[in-house]
Design a protein around this nucleic acid. Structure first.
Lengths: 202, 202, 202, 202
DNA sequence: TATGAATGAGCATTCATTCAT
DNA sequence: CATGAATGAATGCTCATTCAT
């Protein structure tokens, strides 16, 4: 019982710190942000952060974890399993392309940048987020690729191509492309059309 | 005459430094690499680097410039302009996905990471590399999209989706995905098929 | 309560650092002295200095402040206000010429040198030390100049001439003049005689 | 003959460099000025400076020498030797207080600052400039002090007090005192009056 | 657990000076 | 003599991390 309260307190404090870290990292980037910046933003002392996170990198990990969790909570494509795969794709694109809108874009910029370059982070990110996502998605794609692509071994590659398209577009957006910024919302339809062919007219 | 020699000497030294920087950055990443590391690798004094580059960030710029130049030199899709767009696409995918193979992958990891997070770098990268590339490519895509996509205003978006797919796949590769690593060479065909539909059988 | 202790600790540490800085600056001068020199002399780490002073220049400011404070504490010419102006002058000269004796001379050398050349320092020095001193002294001089100098507007100039005489003598001393070194103690009487005329014999 | 031309060339180049150094030192101060700054201002290469001056400090010495020479050339108080000592004093004050006007003030600031703190410079400055000046002036003052001051041994001290007054006023001016700046031209008369008493009315 | 002062390794950058051309 | 590229020692300052209270 007591442990439970303890855990809740700890979780609350961790969240408080991750909130602060997310905010400041998003504003200033990872390297330019100091532990003191985060501590001040969280309204706590520098040293306190080290009671909850081993080091600065662990904060990025914490952010990743939480992004992942909230993503998993929001994501549910179960409804599309049967039947309309086109709708599923459109929903997937919309979800992925919208999820990072607003503030999230900036923290995503920082996270991607750091993950690319930090092996420890990268391995964790791959193992905890990318891999499970791919594995989970494989089922959905399987049935689709069976119809469209001859070699079924390519299912996994096709999946990666599609998720890569989304990721690449986000990166291009983060590079400051004005075209993407202006027409971001048109992407789900367009991407679906590109991948699945023109929507058959009734 | 003398100026020409001077310029050559300067260019040679710059290349020497960029070579060293590329190598060390690729090994250790941008931030962990010290100017001294690069100077040692280049076999020159620390201070000499500053006779050719304003600061550490300028080294990344130099690397970007050279990647860009060599890319432009290697790239020639002119032959595909007329006629077979499918071949053009396949060539494009193959070129893009191969260009960064080997050592280049590692420096690309570092460059992308830093560009994402450094505004000055990002703006230059966009202005000098991304934007011209898109502008140049627009012509090729125009004719294709005219046939496949109803709204011609989406040409630019489609281009970005396709280049984004490549970029995203590279990033996923850099994240350590074993599937991509194993089947990287199958991608050109697969991507072409995904975008353009199955190749029509004779 | 706790704050008071905190403040005392902070003040103590600041004093400890200023002591060290004064000592090392006096020995080696401002520019040749490194932060590490001061830290070692104070028996603390380099970084600790930056918890108490913004930068190296701020150390000079700290020294100035403390010189100023101790000067104010020692200085009290109130007793001479009424009556004997000649005694006042002599006391003034003696005080000014003695105050900097011993170690103080060397730190004064460094401080003057740096203040002359550092605008920020100069402005602060003028505003916090010179100006208040002149303003405060004006009252005393007023009554004297009323008697001796026709144009009362010149009071301020006369004050500056007299304080300048002291300052100039100190600078000449610091230049290494052996005559001044040998007869420094005779100056108060001499200067008084020069300014006020020979002492009337009873 | 050839040597003479050689010497003239060398002297000309030295002057060119000292001109540049004076200008840049006056603008930026000694330490913030780089050899390159001076070389650029002189329109020559960095290395050339080292053919004429041993090091950066030697440039200050060169400036001092030239200030001294031009001062000696301009200074001639011979006419006042006999007769009117009051006129002599006034001329002395006027000369000293005017000589450094305009640009000279700024270079004087830099020179004083550096001389105070650099022993080698200080000794040379004292030996070559201060000492000869005092020795030379002693004769003039002798006769005056004989009349006014009882102890003739104090002649030298009185001289130093008076020259110190000038020096101190200049330093106070350099500290940024607005009163002195506004009424600088009134000083010769005032100082004379302070030292010699009110001018006797006919 | 919270604090925040102390730590000190670490690094980009500068610049006086040298010397081969 | 002039040049200016190369040198590399030297240093102020930052900041992640620790730990006594």
């Amino acid at each position: 019982m007591k442990d439970s309260i303890q855990e809740q307190l700890i979780a609350a404090r961790r969240n408080q710190i991750i909130d602060a870290a997310t905010k400041v990292f998003a504003q200033k980037g990872f390297h330019p942000t100091t532990i003191r910046d985060i501590a001040r933003e969280a309204g706590i002392a520098d040293g306190t952060i080290y009671n909850y996170f081993e080091n600065k990198t662990a904060l990025i990990l914490g952010i990743l974890d939480r992004l992942n969790e909230s993503d998993r909570r929001e994501t549910d494509f179960g409804g599309f399993t049967e039947g309309d795969f086109r709708s599923y794709m459109k929903a997937y694109f919309r979800h992925r392309l919208t999820a990072l809108k607003a503030d999230n874009f900036e923290i995503f910029r920082v996270v991607i940048s750091e993950v690319l370059v930090n092996q420890e982070l990268r391995e964790l990110y791959y193992r905890k987020i990318i891999e499970p996502t791919f594995t989970m998605a494989e089922t959905y794609f399987q049935q689709w690729t069976e119809q469209y692509i001859v070699k079924p071994t390519n299912t996994r590659l096709a999946m990666r191509a599609i998720s890569g398209m989304v990721l690449g577009l986000i990166v291009e957006y983060l590079m400051g492309d004005p075209i993407l910024e202006a027409a971001w919302d048109e992407l789900p339809d367009l991407l679906t059309a590109m991948i699945m062919g023109q929507e058959p007219h009734a």
